[in-house]
């Protein structure tokens, strides 16, 4: 049953996630909330691994989520289901590529789908950030904010925007700082 559900969820993701690998994150978050398969914290680790290994991020994430949910067969199912809709769609479009590109309806649709993805990614971001940086159980202001994590976050964000190195560099820094300062 999990196999079928997994296939269905990733098929839907493949059909509706427009704009590449990152656009699948809101869908994966949705799965984390709906099913007991994995937590949002685990998802964050999966994104890190997917960014640091070869291959398209979207495929890496699907494989990882599938594996976590249902083992090696799960990873095959998730990846196949994710790829299937676009495989069919692309082959249909390939026949009339030029017409497709110039079609006003297509242009209008995709003009607004990317901003929709951006809005959804912000939601994913809030559910990733809040457990890391904020601890609502804390009493005083100092306890509410996880200062160690906030400091690392600020430094990394500055570094990312300023130096534009490969993601793996910042992930490695995060790991080292996490170990040294016992996050």
């Amino acid at each position: 049953m999990t196999y079928l559900l997994l296939f269905w969820e990733f098929f839907k993701t493949g059909l509706f996630a427009v704009g590449g690998g990152l656009a699948t994150i809101p869908f994966l978050m949705d799965m984390a909330e709906k099913y007991p398969w994995f937590t949002t914290a685990e998802l964050s680790n999966m994104i890190a691994v997917s960014e640091s290994t070869p291959g398209p991020i979207g495929i890496n994430m699907a494989t990882y989520v599938g594996f976590t949910t249902a083992g090696p067969i799960g990873s095959l199912i998730a990846t196949t289901a994710l790829v299937l809709p676009s495989l069919v769609i692309i082959m249909i479009i390939a026949g009339f590529l030029q017409k497709f590109r110039e079609n006003a309806l297509v242009k209008g649709t995709f003009y607004v789908l990317h901003p929709a993805v951006i809005g959804m990614l912000f939601v994913s971001l809030t559910s990733m950030v809040s457990p890391l940086l904020i601890n609502l159980a804390g009493g005083t202001l100092l306890e509410i904010f996880n200062l160690k994590a906030l400091a690392l976050f600020a430094v990394l964000l500055f570094g990312i925007l300023k130096f534009k190195k490969h993601p793996i560099v910042y992930i490695a820094i995060g790991a080292v700082v996490g170990i040294i300062f016992k996050f």
Binding site: N45, E51, L125, I171, A175, F183
Partner: peptide, 14 residues
């Protein structure tokens, strides 16, 4: 600990 640090990095990357 490593993954907790990595999660912070992922947020910044997103």
């Amino acid at each position: 600990s490593a993954f907790a640090g990595i999660s912070v990095a992922v947020c910044a990357l997103v």
